[in-house]
Amino acid sequence: MNAGRISSVLLRAEHVGTGPSAEFGRGGAEPYELAIRAGRGLLALVARDGSIEDAVPLDVSAYLAAATDGERDVLGLTVGPVLDIGCGPARLVRAAIESGRIALGIDVSPAAIQHARSAGLPVLHRSVFDPLPAEGTWGAVALFDGNVGIGGDPIALLTRGSELLRPGGRMIVETHTDPERDAVFLAQLVHPAGARSAWFPWAEVGARVASEIAGDLGMEATTVTVAGRTFVLATR
């Protein structure tokens, strides 16, 4: 693996680790949980060193809706059973099942898991770094909606994703619009009503960066753009 990239990530991780952290959107006033339970909410993801004007909008209503045609098309670029990491209310799990595939979602949000289970969808309240069913046999591992940021360590996350795949399996990584984006930082979710989560480690990477990490892992990477969104497809 690229020594310079490892050194850079370690230095950034040390900086991120200097403050309090939690899992994505957890802690504090739990704005993500509130939005999921309410069935709507436009949250903002704010970097500790940034401002609310620079925040990334997160539309929880979209997570609760059905998968888009574009998302179904991207899933269609893979074969076999699907593991959706950070599945939220599990719209992609539903889409995969509706296409005739086996699928499972995992998420750390109790509200998202409860919502998915109430709809009869197979999900687990679990982190990607916990032991998971059928490790090494998944045909597809999905990281949509910026979930490449989980844990604030893209190398560790993509390494874990690769371990979960069977030989020839594909990891779908939705990336930042800037292909050169490569940032690790502390973030916070903010509800329009002012409710804030605890700070949690997060990351944003562009297509070139994600492809480089995948290449360092011995994976073949290609980039596709669907409905204005960019995805890296990394094949084990």
Rank of each mutant, 00 (worst) to 15 (best):
L217V: 13
L189I: 02
V148M: 07
I150W: 02
G39L: 09
Y63H: 12
D107Y: 01
P81E: 07
G206K: 05
G228C: 09
E163V: 10
E180W: 03
R26C: 13
G169Q: 05
T177S: 14
R166P: 00
V79T: 12
R170W: 00
G206S: 06
R208F: 01
V141W: 07
G105A: 08
G152H: 01
L233S: 06
V128N: 04
A29R: 08
S99D: 12
L158P: 02
G88Q: 00
T223F: 02
R101L: 07
A3Y: 01
R126V: 15
A195K: 00
A156R: 14
G17A: 12
E212I: 14
S197M: 06
P131C: 10
V209P: 12
R208A: 08
P179H: 07
G80Y: 03
L75S: 03
V79M: 05
S61L: 05
D145W: 08
G149L: 09
I150N: 05
V224M: 06
L58N: 08
P167S: 11
P122L: 10
S197I: 10
I150P: 08
G19I: 15
A62T: 15
T230C: 09
G50H: 08
P89I: 14
I85N: 01
I213W: 04
S211V: 12
I52W: 14
A3T: 15
P179F: 08
R208Y: 00
T137D: 06
A22M: 04
T159K: 11
D216N: 12
L104M: 11
A44K: 13
S162P: 00
A111Q: 08
V148C: 10
G218Y: 03
P167G: 05
L124R: 09
P179D: 10
L233R: 08
H115K: 10
A198E: 15
G146V: 09
G80T: 01
A29M: 13
D178H: 04
S109F: 01
A90P: 09
G50V: 06
G41C: 11
A55C: 07
E135F: 05
S197D: 14
D54S: 14
T223M: 02
D178M: 05
L42D: 13
V209E: 04
Q114N: 12
A103Y: 09
G228T: 06
A119L: 13
E174R: 11
A207H: 07
E33S: 11
R72E: 08
T230K: 02
S99R: 14
A47D: 13
L121H: 08
V16A: 11
V93Q: 04
E163D: 13
G218T: 08
L121Q: 07
P201H: 04
T78M: 04
S127L: 10
R160E: 05
L132T: 10
P133V: 11
V209N: 02
Y32P: 08
G218F: 05
